[in-house]
Write a protein that binds this DNA or RNA. Structure first.
Lengths: 337, 337
DNA sequence: CAGAGTTAGGCGAACGTTCGCTTTCACTGG
DNA sequence: CCAGTGAAAGCGAACGTTCGCCTAACTCTG
């Protein structure tokens, strides 16, 4: 069905190895006239090189594997897209493999190994505590992850979560808020802990330590954010601002605050996290800490490819986050505690 | 670096072909004892079959290519994810290739061909008019697309756009609206034309033909939807309901309506399209026509794999859409025209 | 105990490349 | 005139599999 080098060679009257030299190879010299002849034959026949055969002899598939847990998540899909593009721009294909309830991480990694990917990009935050994923990933193959990998040993790239928490806290403190609550991601997750650390420290440094009743854990979802916000305001109706650990939950928070009859942002300020594309269109437009998903994907892919090319890469790399101020935050009406 | 069949064979004292039989093959009989021995050796050495070598001899990569234009779009990424999972559950890998400004469609298809994918799944609505994509795709390789392909000849699966438009119109008419406007996708796009046809016909059938001033074209984006909505209300401030061709633009529409001081849905009803995950959390929660992206991805992958397996598949397959009524639609305050 | 049948495993070829080495041949300079 | 040089092309082996066919040895059967 496909045309092979032999076919092209036959048509142009040379050996297939010579055809290889002009069509795919990087070695060897051929005269301009035969080169021309071979090129023409290839075009006429519609020759398309066979990457599997090439990969076999070169011992490199020129392909990276992308292991993602849930890329219907906007953040993950942005990452995957950016990574794929960066890989493509350097000539690499991207083989994706998703892990979810039905298929365990080991199997997904194994599949990628079967295809002999040259490296693996991991975007599976929900699996950061899975020791089996860690074991499967630690090996001779280059790997770069955007989340912590259990057991370590895998270069990680991400954003500075502690700074994220601190930025949110400082912004709200700067506006004059004194009773600030927070809706967090799952407590066991690194990202949650780090953000909480930065957030807590900034509050403490301002002499406003965070009481536990103003911390409610949620699960990254709209519903979770909605419920947690109600819970938070039930526990302490006096809070004037809420830091929500992602934009999706922040939407739920906005809805919950609306339902309680609060005027936004006058009665309660909200800071989100992520800066998803639609956050500027919420009512009110959401102030949020921008997490550079795309840049992370690009950078992760770049590092992975560098690593594949034999270079040394840092074990850890943090991209800067940035506060995007919109209209969901303002000064509280009352100044007193 | 990798362990090959020969290594396993050497350790268990058989020929590598015999090892092949027990580890990967489907043909041939080996005694339980040697099978056991080979299995043990493979486990000890950590044997992982080489899909490239297998693909080479079997003349099948057991891989599908996914050609997407922009999967940071929630709809497309849902599709891609579902397709990847469906393919994986039938043992196929998924090689993704994105087309965008920098890389033209032909090149992307060619890359997939180099990897000798067994079939291609296309999700590139923005390229529906690209004749070169059509040409690149028409060939011996099985292809299934979720959008029209220029020049035809490619099995297409999607949802019924005319019904989508009709559902929106009928819902609004049923609520008593008489002056209904619409914010459409780009006019040249099939999906826009089809939705408009269904929408128009339903209005005409109810004796309320759609005047051109109540139709504004936009570009699927928040900003576009926002601007178009303002434009629509400038052109005809009397409209009491708007049908917006996707949820993203509908968010922009909601914002624009807010800005004009209208109370929603009392002063203006809005119907969206897609039913993205967050639409239930907008203010007000959006009534929308649900497009089954995930099911489309699954079905497309299934059809493609069936096709690869040699079965005949329909040239066209439509999945049902469904109106999801939330709170952004209600009866107009005034009944008269 | 010969011959047939069965079973386990080996063997060779092929898939489509790459790559280093060898061969061929024309041309050069001493 | 002939060794030496250099360019152009060919050749063989290898990459890791699969698969059909072959063979050796064992087990029956009469």
């Amino acid at each position: 069905m496909y045309v092979s080098l032999k076919d092209v060679a036959a048509r142009s009257g040379v050996s297939f190895q010579t055809a290889s030299k002009v069509l795919n190879g990087r070695s060897g010299v051929v005269s301009p006239s035969t080169r021309e002849r071979i090129l023409r034959a290839a075009a006429e026949l519609g020759y398309v090189p066979n990457a599997m055969a090439r990969g076999l002899v070169r011992q490199a598939s020129v392909t990276v594997g992308v292991l993602a847990d849930d890329f219907s998540d906007l953040a993950v899909s942005q990452f995957v897209l950016a990574a794929q593009r960066a890989a493509a721009s350097r000539g690499h294909g991207a083989l994706i493999s998703s892990v979810h309830a039905d298929v365990d991480a080991e199997l997904a990694v194994r599949k990628l190994l079967e295809y002999r990917v040259d490296g693996i990009l991991v975007a599976a935050p929900s699996l950061e505590d899975d020791p089996r994923l860690g074991d499967a990933l630690r090996g001779p193959l280059p790997v770069v992850s955007i989340n912590r990998i259990h057991g370590g040993g895998v270069p990680t790239i991400g954003s500075d979560h502690a700074v994220t928490g601190a930025l949110a806290a400082e912004h709200l403190l700067g506006l004059g808020h004194r009773r600030i609550g927070t809706v967090t991601g799952p407590r066991r997750r690194q990202v949650t802990q780090r953000r909480m650390r930065g957030f807590r420290e900034a509050l403490r440094a301002a002499g406003r330590p965070l009481p536990e009743r103003r911390v409610v854990e949620a699960d990254w979802t709209y519903d979770g954010g909605w419920a947690a916000t109600h819970q938070l305001l039930d526990a302490d109706p006096t809070v004037t601002a809420v830091f929500v650990h992602n934009d999706v939950m922040a939407m739920g928070a906005l809805k919950a605050l609306h339902e309680r009859g609060l005027r936004l942002p006058a009665d309660c300020s909200v800071v989100g996290c992520d800066d998803l594309s639609f956050t500027g269109y919420l009512v009110p437009p959401l102030t949020t800490v921008r997490i550079p998903f795309q840049e992370t994907g690009e950078r992760a892919a770049t590092l992975l490819l560098d690593r594949i090319a034999g270079q040394d890469i840092p074990a850890r790399d943090l991209l800067p986050v940035e506060l995007v101020v919109r209209e969901s935050t303002t000064s509280p009406k009352d100044g007193e505690e």
